[in-house]
Design a protein around this nucleic acid. Structure first.
Length: 771
DNA sequence: AGAGCGCGCCTTTTT
DNA sequence: GGCGCGCTCT
């Protein structure tokens, strides 16, 4: 890495004029409006690299993104320019970086530093208990709408107190026949705080409160972060912008802030994001000589695709003026496929992939199938499998959402934070230990009555003798584990709990197919915890790597499926994902499928202009993922919600200019027959094999590179730069460098058999044999 | 206390 | 089409 680092500044030659200005204008407020494929990421990474070269310390840079994946990729790219120093940049998601600050500052706001993060299910479950306890009709008080109402209140800086005073909100609730909504909100806030838990919105909102109420704390971070960068600014909500403003000390004297975004790609309004932030940003920082740069040249797609995208987005009502253009030539026309039903749509897409592979020599990983809803993936999977085309699905239920995984995690959560009531509720009687609903209700009512945590109440509540015994056994398990936490690492503890709770045995005794799969998932989770301990997987390592259970939980709580590491993915596979998940990505050939009214645009957003505009932006994002080949498909009828439905072709199809579209009249019918049995294509796709269905393969599934019986780990001191070493999972590698203190020595090792060969490994935990 | 069954619910996108 | 929930029975 260091050896072939370019000479200082030389990378600037790789930029066009506007890009270069956006990189080198480091001081004061900067707005970069960046169209799709315009080199946005390149500008961001070079800008950070440039800052570091100009003498800014990496830890003085705060770079906020929306996904861990984006953050990780950015760090890697910066590392290519400035080397290892890049690892000390504060780059990550809003949620993860803020959680990290909150962990340090928790005491100021009455939270324990190892607070729990409630996921959406936990929130819903808590809301349900509140509804029940307030004796409200759950038909009227719908959990989902209450959750989203609470979420949007928080995102708009509305506390329960303000909520109650807000006539508009209160009257909306009365109209919806939910006059007690504000009670639920305030109970929800009180209860999650009591449980030492924060939901996703709290990670932002509590930080805002912290900054608001503790000037010394905010001052500390203002001084720390000399440069603040925000990616995908169009996806920030009011609360996020408010925090950013606090951080850059607006309105007195702003720090150096650079935001990058594209109003046309704003697709998260449904969770509170507002394009208004971009417009406001220009206004808010006008008096500080904000500089605006527009990146308008698209380096990704052919003119046909860019022009189609421009025409489509032109149907939206308001947007920041810009003209996206490409000099890559017209390229292929856009193909539109009409299928009679969803099955045919699946077949035709698989078929066209084969055809393009043959004719244009595209590899599997140069294709993407993008859909509006995750549930559409099934048919495409089916046909890709049938055609022997390797594929890979992103999104849908993430590994960490599975029941068996959540069960073990709930135990771990409870050990780290015994106040965590949702975790307790989940595992108090799983595996069955005779503490059923009746007993649990007693526990809860005592907890409410005495204002203590449920765990405390469990210790004291009056129970029948047998139940008492069970309860004591359960408490004992949690407390013993808690004591072990001081000496044991996350893996040892998780392993202990999985066994002692009889979670593992329960699944072993379940002989059904599902039982076996669950057991495998649980083992995969344990594997994951073990690699967390062994490797330096902590994304942010300003402090020493922390291998505690609390840190592990914090990390995975904010992980989504798109973030799971893909070191063992099939090398060449067609990508299947939702359009949302595809943002920021590009593929030579893209299929946007299910282009029907009520599906895309979704029936949920069709009745408002704002909703429709957002769907159109989503469509814009979808088509701008394509570099050369773009295929749009729709079906006359499809199976949905258990019955056959038929819808008109999406209005968006009509917005694609006719001269960009291939004249398809004749080939609507069965072109499939011609290619279905093409032996060459079949042969080629067979090579890449059948894709594994699950995304998160456990380390157990990885090819065994080393025979465990002959493996004997060497003492830490023997691991020196230049040495060739053997790792049980990663195989043979060469030690490139060592760093870290005596107790926390970290080796950077190049494992030649891995797709991402370079790994940083903590010697304290890793087992390495020097050869 | 727990297992089994059937009803009725909801079906967008995600940190 | 899938799931959770609550009801009933044991």
């Amino acid at each position: 890495m260091h050896a072939n680092a370019p000479t200082p500044g030389s990378y600037l030659d790789q930029l066009n004029d506007v890009q270069r200005q956006a990189v080198t204008t480091t001081d004061g407020p900067v707005l970069v409006v960046a169209g799709p494929g315009s080199g946005k990421t390149r500008v961001l990474t070079f800008r950070i690299a440039y800052l570091i070269e100009q003498g800014t310390a990496p830890w003085e840079i705060l770079s906020l993104t929306f996904t861990n994946k984006a953050a990780r990729e950015m760090k890697e790219r910066i590392e290519n320019v400035v080397g290892q120093r890049a690892s000390r940049i504060w780059a990550g998601t809003f949620h993860s970086l803020f959680a990290r600050i909150l962990r340090v500052e928790a005491n100021h706001i009455g939270y324990p530093s190892n607070f729990t993060i409630y996921d959406t299910d936990d929130s819903k479950s808590l809301i349900n208990s509140i509804i029940r306890e307030l004796n409200l009709d759950k038909q009227v008080y719908n959990t989902n709408s209450i959750r989203s109402r609470i979420s949007s209140a928080k995102s708009n800086l509305v506390t329960p107190k303000l909520y109650e005073k807000n006539e508009e909100l209160m009257s909306q609730d009365r109209m919806a026949r939910m006059p007690m909504m504000h009670k639920i909100y305030s109970a929800y806030v009180a209860r999650s705080k009591k449980a030492g838990a924060m939901d996703f919105d709290d990670l932002l909102f509590r930080l805002f409160e912290l900054f608001q109420n503790h000037p010394a704390v905010v001052e500390k971070y203002r001084n720390k972060f000399k440069y603040v960068l925000v990616d995908e600014f169009q996806d920030t909500n009011t609360l996020q912008y408010a925090i950013i403003k606090k951080l850059v000390q607006y309105p007195d004297s702003p720090r150096n802030i650079c935001v990058v975004g594209d109003d046309a790609q704003s697709i998260y309004a449904f969770r509170g994001a507002t394009i208004q932030n971009i417009l406001d940003f220009e206004q808010d920082f006008k008096k500080f000589n904000i500089q605006t740069f527009k990146l308008e040249q698209n380096y990704r797609s052919t003119s046909n695709i860019v022009e189609a995208a421009n025409a489509v987005i032109g149907h939206n009502r308001r947007q920041i003026q810009k003209k996206i253009w490409s000099d890559k030539g017209d390229g292929q026309k856009i193909q539109i496929i009409r299928a009679s039903d969803d099955n045919e749509e699946g077949r035709r897409v698989a078929d066209t992939i084969l055809e393009q592979k043959n004719r244009y020599h595209l590899a599997n990983n140069e294709f993407a199938i993008l859909y509006r809803t995750n549930s559409q993936s099934r048919i495409f999977e089916e046909y890709l499998r049938r055609f022997n085309i390797a594929y890979r699905i992103f999104g849908g239920q993430s590994f960490y959402q599975r029941k068996e995984v959540k069960d073990l995690i709930a135990y771990l959560r409870l050990v780290v934070n015994p106040a965590d009531e949702e975790a307790l509720k989940r595992v108090i009687n799983y595996p069955k230990r005779g503490i059923g609903n009746t007993s649990y209700n007693k526990v809860i009512s005592l907890a409410r009555q005495q204002d203590i945590t449920a765990m405390e109440a469990l210790k004291h509540v009056a129970l029948p003798k047998r139940t008492r015994n069970s309860a004591d056994g359960f408490i004992e398990l949690i407390e013993t584990s808690r004591k072990r936490m001081e000496s044991a690492n996350a893996y040892e503890l998780a392993d202990y709990i999985a066994k002692k709770s009889t979670l593992l045995d329960t699944l072993r005794n379940d002989n059904s197919m599902e039982g076996a799969a669950k057991l495998e998932n649980l083992n995969a989770l344990l594997d994951g915890i073990s690699s967390f301990v062994e490797e330096d997987t902590v994304i942010d390592t300003e402090t020493l790597p922390d291998k505690s259970l609390a840190t592990y939980l914090q990390n995975i709580a904010l992980l989504t499926d798109a973030d799971t590491k893909d070191e063992d993915k099939p090398a060449e596979a067609v990508t299947l994902m939702s359009v949302h998940a595809a943002k920021g990505l590009e593929f030579r050939s893209v299929f946007v499928v299910g282009l029907e009214e009520k599906l895309f645009p979704s029936f949920m957003s069709m009745d408002t202009m704002d909703g429709l505009d957002e769907e159109r932006r989503l469509f814009y994002v979808a088509i701008t993922r394509a570099e050369e080949f773009l295929t749009l498909t729709y079906a006359n009828s499809r199976y949905r919600f258990g019955k056959v439905t038929s819808n008109d072709p999406s209005r968006f199809l009509a917005e694609v200019p006719g001269d960009a579209v291939e004249n398809t009249g004749a080939n609507m019918t069965s072109r499939s027959a011609r290619h279905e049995f093409d032996p060459v294509a079949a042969q080629r796709s067979r090579v890449s094999g059948i894709a594994p269905r699950q995304r998160n393969r456990s380390a157990r599934d990885m090819p065994t590179r080393v025979d465990p019986s002959t493996f004997s780990p060497s003492p830490i001191e023997d691991v020196q730069p230049g040495a060739t070493v053997l790792h049980l999972k990663f195989g043979e590698g060469k030690v490139l460098a060592l760093d870290g203190g005596a107790d926390n020595r970290i080796a950077t090792i190049h494992f030649k058999e891995l797709s991402q060969p370079q790994k940083r490994i903590m010697l304290r935990f890793a087992k390495l044999q020097v050869l």
